[in-house]
Nucleic acid binder design. Structure first.
Lengths: 347, 347
DNA sequence: ATTTGGCACTCGATCACCTAGAGTGCTAAT
DNA sequence: ATTAGCACTCTAGGTGATCGAGTGCCAAAT
């Protein structure tokens, strides 16, 4: 009887929708009314019992109504959800935020704020420092006091990194300029990961004449490229405090765990990385994320692309009971818009 | 009878100390024991009634003990507190964090983390973007796509700021190098605030020959210096989630207000700025800060100096009931150490 | 003049107890 | 297959009693 199954599905849909809206367990009486079907509460009860057997809903205790289980949410999202098209005005407003030609860092920060403000959830944006994809553009050396040199590295996409390094001996301004020019001529347009290799290779067969330059170059590479550049520096989180408004996270202990996860970042980055492959929006419900701290949360993420290449992921995190029908399309377009804005910066 | 007054003071001291340690109202019985004085609870009660008249303590309700009032804390801190010298080992460990020659930004971030980790409170570090004090060192132009130029500004103290600007027309790499050299020769070592003025002045009497360069220079100044550089970008906060462990902040609503204050930042910056003048550690108790969100918190801050000049402030924020005798000296030495580490970078 | 013991009193916390209401599962009737 | 009816369960919320901690004040003691 596919008819019965269909009805059960329909009831599940209503139930999840109402529960997301109200936040309270639904009883058979209310569900009977809300469904619009001309069925008595008793019938609904039977159907609900079936849903419970299937593990899609459960009741917190004997005399409360039913709430969706994690699996229930899953089914709802995968096959029952009807996403709302974005409010046209919202779209326009959001587009306005992505002013072309802002530098990437700012752009990403704005996006993070935008996400959390519009959704009233906590937002996440990952900017993978994928050295492999970064292309070297220019290097500058600025002599500071003593043997300290400020190295400024610019990549094709307009990102700037800088770092102070200690050298074996002092260098004159002229030497620094000379060295920088040498670098820039030789390595301009080469992928950073390549630069490392080439440098190391060159170092083998260096002539006496290039000795001094290479000496500096060696120190550069070691300090600038090889030494770890603070992993975890690449996750932006905003709007965490929005989560305090949700009664289901009212337990301070839970909240504490969640906030600690935000500062630890490592796990979150890993989680978001998992969705890099996925073409579009990906949703982790409760324990699906694999992290205990997120067990009462859902994560909605989407990768964003620059020139057809996935370069990062963004999304929001909030209680499992969140308005997916609005959140999903919003995360989706934000990813697209950020990708677009970033694309227009490159060469 | 200064004798009685002295005793009352002493009792206040014990009371505050015990309350800070235990977090529970103190009754006359316990206080009689804890004080070590050979007095009966009844006597203590009389003394406590006096303290209450003076507005130094109050009882939450009739049959609870007494807790310090804001004024009580004030008196305690101003004249009764005996600060604990820092654990020698802690000092050494902390000193280890300030490795000489790290770039300023990193240094400040480390400090913020250090503060919150050691004190288990939320930490604040202000890095005032005091243009007046920044000295221009070097400028670089990197041409991006179309008319977009990446401008990199380096100041004497090793800070690097960068910005993408749109120009009226495209410039060739040679032009950019030329312009940069011109800039660097002319303005190296001049205070940023001066650069603005000189530039504007020069622009008046520019010769035809310099026209093009000045055209670029004009755009530079406008976009780089004049347009506001995101005020508020200069406050670092860490360890907010530490605050969730304090029962007195257990009220989600209060917590929410506090966290919102952290993200708003404006008020906090203003608060910290107020302590810039003070020579050493300054303490705001509860409402003294003037901000409603902080009414149950205390703020302990100290300015830090580079080359004898106050350049910023740092400190912690936590519940009024915090172990001042440890926090105060710790904030103090942290400020000194950060100042020291920053001083050693400049020329 | 201070200190103290005694005593009545107040208030919060805890517990047992009750009730109302919401919701269920099951059975028998339709 | 649906429904009405009914007994049952469980929570939320309220009441009242008790306990213990702590106070304030008075009169006695030092």
């Amino acid at each position: 009887m596919p008819d019965l199954l269909r009805r059960a599905e329909f009831l599940l849909k209503i139930l999840v929708e109402r529960y997301i809206a109200e936040g309270q367990p639904l009883g058979s009486r209310t569900l009977a009314k809300q469904s619009g079907l001309d069925l008595s509460p008793a019938t609904i009860r039977n159907a609900m019992a079936d849903l419970e057997d299937m593990g899609l809903v459960k009741s917190p205790h004997t005399s409360a109504g039913r709430v969706p289980t994690q699996l229930g949410y899953r089914v709802f999202i995968d096959s029952l959800l009807t996403v709302q098209p974005l409010n046209a005005e919202t779209i326009r407003q959001v587009e306005g935020e992505f002013v072309v030609g802002t530098d990437p860092q700012k752009l990403v920060e704005t996006t993070s704020l935008l996400l959390s403000e519009v959704t009233k959830l906590a937002s996440l944006v990952v900017v993978p420092r994928r050295e492999e994809q970064l292309v070297f553009r220019q290097l500058d050396f600025v002599g500071l006091s003593g043997c300290r040199i400020l190295v400024i590295l610019v990549t094709e996409d307009g990102q700037v990194q800088n770092r102070i390094i200690d050298t074996e001996r002092g260098y004159s301004p002229a030497e620094l300029v000379h060295a920088a020019n040498y670098f820039n001529d030789k390595y301009g347009g080469v992928a950073i990961s390549e630069v490392k290799h080439i440098l190391l290779a060159d170092m083998q067969r260096t002539t006496e004449e290039m000795q001094r330059m290479m000496e500096l170059a060696l120190e550069m590479t070691r300090k600038m490229f090889v030494e770890p550049t603070d992993e975890g520096d690449d996750l932006l989180v905003s709007g965490e405090s929005n989560l305090m408004d949700f009664p289901e996270l009212g337990d301070i202990q839970k909240l504490r765990k969640l906030f600690d996860a935000f500062t630890a970042k490592r796990d979150l980055v890993h989680l978001l990385d998992r969705s890099m492959r996925a073409g579009g929006v990906k949703i982790f419900i409760g324990r699906e994320s694999g992290y205990e701290a997120l067990k009462d949360c859902s994560v909605v993420v989407a990768p964003y692309m620059v020139d057809g290449q996935v370069v990062g992921t963004l999304g929001v995190i909030g209680p499992t009971r969140m308005p997916y029908e609005h959140i999903i399309p919003f995360v989706d377009v934000t990813a697209k818009l950020l990708g677009g804005a970033l694309s227009s910066i490159g060469r």
